[in-house]
Design a protein around this nucleic acid. Structure first.
Lengths: 152, 152
DNA sequence: CAAATGTCTACCAATATGGTAGATTTAGTA
DNA sequence: TACTAAATCTACCATATTGGTAGACATTTG
């Protein structure tokens, strides 16, 4: 039931890009140093996110990455699926990598795992990066700091 | 977010043993053939479950395994944790393998993953093997069969 | 043209997963 | 007591996944 390092980094990068939405493209190097993510590793994470249409990129000097659409239209579920694959604990209850199991109708493990999948997707497919930005700002205020960096 | 084969087999074996609670010990071989689980693999799964106190065993001729307590006192969560470890998607929100992350108080990823963990454990720490047996029997009735085997 | 950037292909070490093999210990039974 | 069927223990092992790294190439800007 583990979130991979890849997805973890992806979420951090996405929050960073959401915080800087409007600003135009942001370079890999900036994200990798600010969020302390190995640059080469981050490169193929962002590439993956571009290939599924979550990010846009610009090549060459002054290039970089930016969100392909507004942060409130991108959910955590979309990002995690792009990198780790299905959210469902078993394939027979997965939306994106569905494979029927032997006795689908009567399989009781399947029925529980369906409940688990729904519980997970209820959270991750509802939460957008706009929500994440709001949470980040709120938690900063509560902490009573006006630091320029926020912990994601 | 995947359930391992190990946990999957463990759940099947546990349901089998729950269905046969009262009957005394059941042998590995019987479970492995009925549930089509590689016997040697099942051996160390059951051994693990015994070591954490979920199963009792009896050695020697006429030996075997049985539940250490009534099926309504054992949850799916207990079994999966014994084999796969933490249910939480990240360690900083785990009960059993908790490790603080850098900025615990303000980390927004952590706060979402806490929600995910709670959603998962709400299902898995609530569902007992007695519930599973009931579900299995219900789904048989609905199917209108009186087969001796049930699909788990 | 030079420099800075993303893109692509290929590789790699460490760990987890899904097993298998074989010797040993224990307990019931003839 | 000897035999046998069961769990237990120790040790492997092949394959896939994870978490990266290296380096050449393509593209844009100044």
């Amino acid at each position: 039931m583990k979130l991979s390092k890849k997805s973890d980094y992806a979420l951090r990068a996405m929050i960073y890009l959401s915080m800087n939405y409007q600003r135009g493209t942001v370079q890999i190097k900036e994200i990798s140093t600010k969020e302390r993510i190995p640059q080469k590793f981050l490169e193929n994470i962002l590439l993956t996110l571009r290939k599924v249409g979550i990010l846009n990129s610009k090549m060459g000097l002054k290039g970089g990455y930016e969100l392909a659409r507004s942060p409130d239209l991108i959910t955590l579920g979309q990002v995690i699926r792009a990198l780790d694959g299905a959210l469902a604990p078993v394939d027979c209850v997965s939306q994106i990598s569905y494979k029927p199991c032997a006795e689908e109708v009567t399989c009781v493990i399947r029925s529980v795992m369906m409940d688990v999948r729904n519980a997970i997707t209820d959270v991750l497919d509802t939460m957008t990066f706009a929500d994440m930005c709001k949470r980040a700002k709120d938690s900063l205020e509560k902490k009573g700091t006006n630091a320029l960096t926020y912990s994601i």
